[in-house]
Design a protein around this nucleic acid. Structure first.
Length: 200
DNA sequence: CCACGGATTGGCT
DNA sequence: GCCAATCCGTGGA
């Protein structure tokens, strides 16, 4: 399997959000390789999207969203959580896709350790795996994604995505986004239908 | 099962 | 000063 190329990311954000489903998210940290299959995403579309961090233009916080497709945008919220986004589109467009949930595949025991608050006694059961990466801040905690990873290139070796066969249209569920105040009506959330690791 | 509220920092109005 | 692209524990049905 190959790393996704810049041409994958540098396309319209809704297209990328939908096509990211099923791809493999890889995070390497000190000899551990974490792998998860992307099962839920949300598109944030810049100045035409009142829910987007870039709706009101460039700031120090959101500048990575303007760097163009193929970067990682990590933001801090609620005073304690990090969330990870895949920057999309051309340089200057200010768009990104939030990774909302992963199906954990590799590095599961360490993910469980990183998610110390839950502390499941067993990590090799599906029920124990379930709360590791089924939310945007949970997956960042499990995969050790924080401020330092903001702005890194997805063409490098620290965090990257591996290609996978495209899903059939019938396997994809489309709905409104979660947890936002503005732009609620826009159906810019994508998930793999019936997948157990989707946040809800 | 569902609804609700507290946690806790930093960005921006 | 207000409040957020969230999570978790609690309490009741």
């Amino acid at each position: 399997m190959n790393k996704l190329p810049p041409s994958f990311y540098q396309r319209p954000t809704l297209t990328v959000a939908r096509e990211l489903l099923g791809k493999f998210f890889v995070r390497r940290h000190k000899g551990t390789r974490f792998v998860g299959r992307i099962v839920e995403t949300e598109a944030y579309r810049g100045k035409l999207d009142p829910a987007s961090h870039t709706y009101r233009g460039k700031t120090k916080r959101n500048e990575v969203m303007y760097w163009g497709g193929g970067h990682l945008y990590v933001y801090f919220t609620y005073g304690m959580h990090f969330c990870a986004n895949i920057v999309t589109g051309k340089e200057g467009s200010g768009e990104a896709v939030l990774i909302r949930a992963l199906e954990p595949l590799e590095g599961i025991d360490i993910m469980a350790k990183n998610r110390a608050r839950t502390r499941p006694k067993r990590t090799n059961t599906t029920s124990a795996r379930r709360n590791l990466t089924n939310g945007p801040a949970k997956l960042c905690e499990a995969l050790l994604i924080r401020r330092e990873q903001n702005g890194i290139s997805l063409l490098g070796d620290e965090i990257y995505l591996l290609d996978a066969p495209p899903l059939h249209a019938a396997e994809v569920a489309r709905s409104t986004r979660i947890g936002i105040k503005n732009g609620k009506e826009k159906r810019w959330r994508f998930a793999i239908k019936g997948n157990r690791w989707v946040s809800r």
